[in-house]
Design a protein around this nucleic acid. Structure first.
Lengths: 194, 194
DNA sequence: GAAAAGACTTGCCATTTGGCAATTATTTAA
DNA sequence: TTAAATAATTGCCAAATGGCAAGTCTTTTC
């Protein structure tokens, strides 16, 4: 039996599709490869692609009011890559999405997405639910960072995203957790001697 | 001309409703009053009500792994009150929603919501979008707290939720921002002398 | 309206984290 | 393969925040 397209697999968690529907969806998807440091989306651009990561890691970063670079999200295997707010609202991205490793992505353009929306029942709701779940998870995690020490935050990160710590440079993890690279380096040292 | 029901008003930002639809929706809504310190939802309960706040403020709080009480959300006028994750998934709430002032709420039960879902086109998508927007806003705000000093965080809070600072006890704002009440008290002192 | 309970402020000191410079390790590019 | 650039570590000190106790102010309750 042929292995299912991972993109459809994710959607299938919310509803089963007829073979005809699967074909239609597949026809509107595109496989893309990114090398380390390639960008999926740049600041100021409209985000007209949404992709499911089948290998690799991306990060989303922007510059805050002091000009400091802040890594606000990581996007890992089996997660969607894209600035979802921009994708759905045709708005302009305030940050950049960059590949931290070589990546493979199954992606759909906004125009193809709109076609599927008209053809496939529940299409929009399914995506909304997926995004909702991601956001709820993310909000809860960020909330937990606010009331923790640096060490606790990093331990939670390790627990929450066990895959990421090996793939992502320390400086970006530090930024993501809201601490300096110096602090994170010290935290790691402390943890390693436990 | 009769003033529109605020609940329908909010939904109308996403789609216009026929008069018949509005009647149907209204029929499934209920007006409720809460006194200060009444609970909308308790830890361990299933959240089968979703409400639009027409006056007053609620907070959502839970106890973290150290047993400290953490205020994770405020819900103000024109926002929805409820644990949305629980509402849509019939799951059990990990925290309590409590009225911080006397409140008036237009609410809908899950069973009535389900009825509307079958009767009103786009019903589910509209709610998903509303929740999505709230979550995106919340995530961005929380993210900004991670890279700020206590004073900056409080100034952002004032800017972001200008109404709330007068209505909400200091201790809960402090918890929300991830600092101690002592620190927030000092921050306020500093700010007042600027 | 008085007593009690709870919330907020402030001082003092401890702890945590940040900032910067110097050093080492790792990655990139020629 | 080597030189250059970038990233990570570590020491030292400064700044920010936390913890606790005492005192004041506010709210609740009887």
């Amino acid at each position: 039996m042929k292995t299912k397209n991972p993109f459809i697999q994710i959607l299938s968690n919310f509803r089963n599709f007829e073979l005809e529907e699967e074909k239609l969806i597949t026809k509107h998807l595109e496989l893309n490869n990114y090398s380390t440091r390639d960008t999926f989306l740049k600041t100021g651009e409209r985000n007209d692609q949404l992709g499911l990561i089948t290998s690799g890691v991306f990060r989303y970063y922007f510059y805050d009011e002091n000009g400091s670079e802040i890594t606000a999200h990581f996007m890992d295997v089996n997660e969607f890559v894209g600035n979802v707010a921009c994708f759905f609202e045709y708005s302009i991205s305030a940050g950049t999405i960059e590949a931290l490793t070589d990546c493979e992505v199954i992606q759909i353009s906004k125009s193809n997405w709109d076609i599927c929306k008209n053809e496939i029942k529940d299409w929009e709701v399914i995506f909304q639910k997926i995004i909702n779940n991601v956001l709820i998870k993310k909000t809860n995690f960020q909330r937990s960072l606010l009331n923790n020490t640096a060490t606790e935050s990093y331990l939670k990160f390790l627990n929450y995203y066990p895959e990421l710590s090996n793939k992502v440079p320390l400086q970006h993890v530090a930024s993501y957790l809201g601490m300096t690279p110096f602090s994170l380096s010290r935290v790691r040292k402390t943890i390693s001697t436990l």
